[in-house]
Amino acid sequence: MPLGQPPEGEQNPYSQDPYQQSWGPQPSSGGGGGGGNRAKAVAIAAATTVVVAAGVSGALILGGGKDDSADGRGGDTNAPASASPSATASASASASGHPHAGESERPTVPGWKVVVNPKWGTAFDAPPDWVVKPPDLIIGFEDSKVDYSDPHNWGKTVIVMSAPAVLRENWCLSVDDKSGRTHGTDLAAAGTKGAQGAESTDDVALSQVTRWVYGGYTQPDKKSIVSDRTAQPYTTVSGIKGSIAWARSRNTPRKGTCESDGKAVTFGFKNSAGDFVAWSLYGATGVKDELPDSTIMKILSTVRLHGTPRPSAS
């Protein structure tokens, strides 16, 4: 399926079906040895114009964004921002004025937390040690070619999702030698995004899952990604039918203190409005505290419909 057009002058790494294209080497952006140049993330308060720090990388972004494109490019913003590197993504929670959705909800797994995405009309449960972020927060991974010294080269994202839950925020900290910014890497995160333009639930799962591994763990390298070539049917405990696909990286060339291999799973389904939606979870692999696949599948099993989705244009 068409995966959208990249900004002028930028090559979209998934401009074709990622399982049909040649995964040739890409030039490095020359990122610093401290933070590396791959696992950089964005965090955007979607409904506000608030300067916030990324939950995964510490990158500072100003303004809003979208999470509804099938190709993952929703949420791009090129507005410059300035703030102290010590700021945290929690700033968006208080500044947005919106309480965390799900605080009064009952989880399907006793003792877990409910994570609600009111825009897409979905919910899932997260284990008690996860942090539930505001529903209007968008997180994701930015392109490794982003240059913080150039205000015109900000905000090019690889993939985003909204209303996330995060496991061990700032699990690892490093300083980017090039920008001097402190980057905090999360151990894992999960959330939901739209899949406008998708043709099927298989299409949703396959077109998005590899982006999470590429954006968070391997870019600019593509050779180390191992992914499902066909999606598998899956039904959640609540009865939602859709498709899942996995992607992992192995032996990715590493340049930074906090960089590791990673994995991701995406569940493609339709919400009550008939819109295609993608629920995704990504996490570091080959590390001491790696999130087990069994726990990931238990979290995935709790995905369910919740309330009336907002219009896609909202």
Results as ranks from 00 to 15, higher is better:
187 L>R: 15
154 W>F: 11
109 V>I: 15
211 R>G: 07
313 A>Y: 14
288 K>L: 11
14 Y>D: 15
274 G>V: 06
268 G>I: 00
8 E>A: 12
125 D>E: 10
239 G>Q: 13
91 A>Y: 11
217 Y>T: 06
215 G>M: 02
36 G>P: 09
120 W>C: 01
143 D>P: 11
307 G>F: 06
116 V>S: 02
90 S>P: 02
64 G>C: 05
131 V>N: 00
108 T>H: 10
143 D>R: 09
143 D>C: 07
284 A>L: 05
197 G>D: 12
225 I>T: 03
35 G>W: 04
37 N>R: 06
179 S>F: 11
249 S>H: 12
196 Q>R: 15
23 W>P: 02
286 G>H: 13
284 A>S: 09
160 V>R: 01
284 A>G: 02
200 S>G: 00
244 I>E: 03
62 L>A: 06
94 S>F: 11
290 E>V: 07
236 T>L: 09
158 V>G: 09
34 G>N: 12
185 T>D: 11
82 S>N: 14
198 A>T: 11
128 P>Y: 03
24 G>K: 12
112 W>Q: 01
184 G>I: 05
279 W>Y: 11
135 P>C: 08
303 V>S: 03
184 G>E: 02
196 Q>T: 12
276 F>A: 04
277 V>S: 04
122 T>E: 04
279 W>F: 15
287 V>F: 08
52 V>W: 02
134 P>A: 13
35 G>L: 04
259 E>P: 05
27 P>R: 08
289 D>I: 15
62 L>R: 14
52 V>Q: 10
16 Q>L: 14
100 H>L: 06
149 S>C: 14
251 N>D: 14
166 V>G: 03
51 V>K: 11
184 G>Q: 02
150 D>F: 12
68 D>I: 05
80 P>C: 14
281 L>D: 01
167 L>Q: 07
238 S>C: 08
284 A>Q: 09
